[in-house]
Structure formats: C-alpha cells, structure tokens
C-alpha cells in the first residue's frame, strides 16, 4: 500500500492542514504523520473524526505521498500545489508568506 497522510481545510480560515502525530493540525506537510498500512490509515481517519466534530476542520481526505530523502512529497501535482501554495506566487507560498507583511 502507498503511503498516505490526512489532509483537510481548517474551518475558521480555510487553509490546508495535515494531521500530525500529536493530533494537532499543521499547515506544514513536513510534520504530518505518514501511514503506510491499512491499520494506520484507519487509525488516522478515526482520530480525525474528533477534529471534525470539534469544528476544527472540513473536507478531510487522504492523499498519497512519497517520502524522499526524509521529505514528504505529495505524488499528485494538485496536492503538491495545495501543500506549497500557488505556483505562480512564490511570495504567497506556505514557506514564504508572512501574514500581515503584505498589508
């Protein structure tokens, strides 16, 4: 089975987030928890239901990733763009964007 991480949008600001091992949600896919077999994928889903009922996140789904040289990379380009930001606005990328700096 391919490796998966669990992704969603945060309810209050809509930003893309990933489930982390300590049950928090991070905008950074690099710290997300990777599941490699059916048991751990199901465990991710079970843990996420709490966040749904706590109104923390919406639209959750699993995405396929490859771990290359310690980096977690989505295999689909769409998910790569979700994880990093619009490819045409480096200044708004998840790595570079500083809230308030553009105002």
């Amino acid at each position: 089975m391919s490796q998966q991480v669990l992704s969603a949008n945060r309810l209050n600001d809509g930003l893309v987030v990933y489930l982390v091992a300590d049950d928090t949600w991070s905008e950074d896919i690099e710290v997300s928890e990777v599941a490699g077999d059916e048991g751990s994928v199901n465990a991710l889903l079970t843990r996420a239901t709490q966040a749904v009922s706590d109104q923390k996140i919406v639209d959750l789904y699993l995405i396929e990733v490859a771990v290359v040289g310690g980096e977690i990379r989505p295999t689909k380009y769409r998910e790569f763009i979700r994880a990093t930001g619009p490819s045409v606005r480096a200044d708004l990328s998840k790595q570079n964007y500083v809230p308030g700096a553009d105002a």
Partner: peptide, 13 residues
C-alpha cells in the same frame, strides 16, 4: 455559504 458567494477552493475560502 454558497448563497453568499463563499466557496472552499484549493487553498482556502
């Protein structure tokens, strides 16, 4: 929300 023009898109609302 859709009736008020609010979508959930790729990165955000």
């Amino acid at each position: 929300r859709l009736m008020n023009g609010v979508y959930l898109q790729l990165h955000a609302y």
